[in-house]
Design a protein around this nucleic acid. Structure first.
Lengths: 234, 234
DNA sequence: CTCCTTTAATGGCTTTAAGACACTAAGTGA
DNA sequence: TCACTTAGTGTCTTAAAGCCATTAAAGGAG
């Protein structure tokens, strides 16, 4: 490690205001929803925004740890899937001056944080189809980019499964993918690739509802990394 | 736009030291090479590092514009392909304190900046196969991530073409992909997918060398976005 | 109990695109 | 003219998705 330069003081530098934001998706009532927080202070006081904020230089060990902390503060849980998305920066996106946000993209089951979110007025699940245009900062662009990333993942991976409860049926998983992608998918193809990749484990349980009971599955940990060599039709 | 808060001063905040770095790849003599710059001051004085540095809050209009500027300063040209990679941050990666770097991944033809790079002692093209371990900061990790991203792109896109001169042969393009991916590829498959996607245009010219002359092609602009629905075997 | 409805799961043929590999094409130089 | 070299193509096989019909397993109405 190089020596720490003498007389170095960050406050002497002109650096951008750097923050971290999280785009947390879930699925509920056949809709893809994103977590929004109402801002309590300027800038954009009263507007809805992504959960996020300043890095805590004393506590945060990495930017991903910071993003997880922000999401836990708003939902009470750590999302089972998180990955870094992209960063946005420029002189005009924050009225306080040149700013950067490092955005993360995460998934969680609606049931896992239902009570935390429902109990406070300044946090809500917003369907992505009915997003208003007047979100704080450039958060509308950030959500659009996260949505597109999720859409790609739905075409070549089983990552969307992490927006479902621990145990789910194949029909639930497929209709989630269909909501994300925006088109119908072929049932046989969808199931065939899942089976041959061995990404799910059978819980032995089944649903109880009208019609034939559906088997309940759990996603294996490897399914986070797995990438099919061929996309489904988008 | 929200009102600018009164009495706001960035120097009152504890913010990380935010920088931008570029991983610029090219191909030369059948090797994938990355542009490195020797640091002239602390920290890591004398070590080799990625081209990059502070955002110029007066001039840079975005973080991508900043990355392009850094690369132009070292190579004399703007790379024909650039995209954001990821950001790295933490308390220990820079001895001056909590820091963040936003990394970009770019491609350029070796011939386009050969003279600029060869004329100065503190800039060099380093083959990625013989990267030393003692690069500045965590730049070795950043290069590894960029290399992996490039490898994925070589499997499902023609983006690597932007590391070649404007006009190139199919054999040159294929062997570039092979160098990036690290395995041999099937000639027929490689050409068939290029033809059906119509990503290249025939220049009408051909090489002059031993053996049958090879046709010269140019990449269409659309080839930056195009994504094959199926990967080649990696 | 039997049949109708509903939802889950599978069988099997078609289509698409990649892999393998032999073959033809078009130059150079002895 | 012929051997050699590199470029480019023909064609069969294989892998995996699309399509669509069929079977399976439950509950409820009569």
């Amino acid at each position: 490690m190089a020596a720490k330069p003498r007389n170095y003081n960050i406050h002497d530098y002109d650096v951008p205001l750097t923050t971290v934001d999280g785009v947390l998706f879930t699925v509920h009532e056949d809709q893809l929803k994103v977590l929004l927080v109402q801002r309590g202070k300027e800038p954009f006081e009263g507007k809805w925004a992504l959960p996020g904020g300043f890095i805590d230089l004393k506590q945060d060990e990495s930017i991903e740890a910071c993003a997880i902390r922000k999401l836990r503060e708003k939902t009470g849980v750590e999302p089972p899937y998180i990955e870094q998305l992209l960063s946005w920066g420029g002189p005009d996106r924050d009225p306080r001056g040149w700013s950067v946000t490092i955005a993360f993209f995460a998934l969680v089951a609606h049931s896992a944080c239902e009570s935390s979110v429902a109990s406070v007025a300044d946090v809500k699940w917003q369907p992505v189809q009915t997003l208003k245009k007047d979100l704080a900062f450039d958060h509308r662009d950030v959500i659009a980019a996260a949505h597109e990333r999720l859409r790609q993942k739905a075409l070549y991976s089983m990552v969307p499964a992490f927006a479902l409860p621990d145990e789910f049926t194949l029909t639930e998983l497929q209709s989630l993918h269909e909501v994300i992608i925006g088109t119908q998918l072929n049932k046989k193809s969808f199931r065939r690739r899942l089976e041959s990749a061995e990404l799910l484990e059978d819980t032995g349980k089944a649903t109880e509802s009208r019609g034939r009971p559906a088997k309940l599955y759990r996603a294996k940990a490897e399914s986070k990394q797995y990438r099919f060599i061929r996309n489904l039709e988008g």
